[in-house]
Design a protein around this nucleic acid. Structure first.
Lengths: 162, 162
DNA sequence: TATTGTTATACTCTATAACTATA
DNA sequence: TATAGTTATAGAGTATAACAATA
């Protein structure tokens, strides 16, 4: 990470590509920055054999033991069918269990195993460390402001989940 | 857009899902906010039959007529093979042309057609309008700070393209 | 009739290896 | 030998329709 900018050896005299129009848009910068953050996170989670989605699901199950798949899909902002394979994987690796709910036999209560909680703790610690490295030099106030702005966008324009 | 929050009718008494651990991470909020921005952008571009990638490519070609595919792939932070279908589509729709470079017969110079420039102008205007709507209420200073932060993350940690 | 979880499916975006034609 | 563009392919992430079991 943070190599000394090897950059492309464009043939001499060829001007840099201008993104003057695009750079005015927040969406453009969010995509590019998110790609970086996403790639860094993927690297960080690789030793734990987790991806962003399996990591997110595991953390939410640890923090909310007993929750149902539909609630989790809602919290993760993904469709229920897409959650199935994620839960399958976490269950296969014995990080969580799918327990039948006695009061509603259609639903599953998702619970972390001891191994799941331990892996979760380690992964969260690693992600915390990596994110501070990624954001080193960024003032805490700026970071808070950026997060607040992101939340504002999420909250006000998040799609309905009827 | 901006419906009156129909929200999920969770069965009475079920507590909301807590994302207390995840919400501390910038990456978590960036993913969620980016999903919103991305969905909004896709809606905005639909009338022009453009996606985020074809839109980005078209704008860059209009702003940098004559650039080559490898330069464009570099600017867009995507791999060259993935750019081919994008350029194919823009060429098929006669929004751009692939012109052979006399001095290097391996390369193509990408140039916008008149129709391409016109569609580009209209699309950029629409995206500008929609982004202001999406960010209404956000102070200009905050917006600038967020963009600066995103650029900082891009610049310092962007992957090498050797 | 509605909901939970599931299957099947499809589309987009991304990534790599290997090819061709040029340099 | 190296580069520009291409092909083929595979893996993720995301979205919808339709089904079985249950409410």
């Amino acid at each position: 990470m943070a190599k000394p900018a090897p950059k492309n050896k464009l043939q001499a005299g060829v001007p840099q590509v201008s993104d003057a129009t695009l750079r005015r848009f927040l969406g453009y910068h969010m995509k590019r920055a998110f790609n970086v953050v996403q790639a860094d996170l993927a690297q960080t989670l690789k030793p734990f054999d987790l991806r962003m989605l399996t990591y997110t699901a595991l953390v939410l199950i640890v923090d909310n033991p007993g929750l149902r798949q539909s609630q989790l899909a809602d919290a993760m902002d993904i469709e229920r069918p897409n959650l199935v394979v994620i839960i399958d994987e976490l269950e296969r690796r014995e990080l969580i269990t799918r327990d039948r709910v006695p009061t509603d036999r259609r639903a599953y209560a998702l619970n972390p195993t001891l191994a799941g909680r331990r892996l979760c703790d380690k992964a969260v610690a690693a992600v915390t460390t990596h994110e501070s490295l990624l954001l080193v030099g960024l003032e805490e106030e700026t970071r808070a402001k950026v997060i607040a702005t992101m939340e504002q966008i999420e909250k006000r324009h998040g799609r309905d989940r009827t």
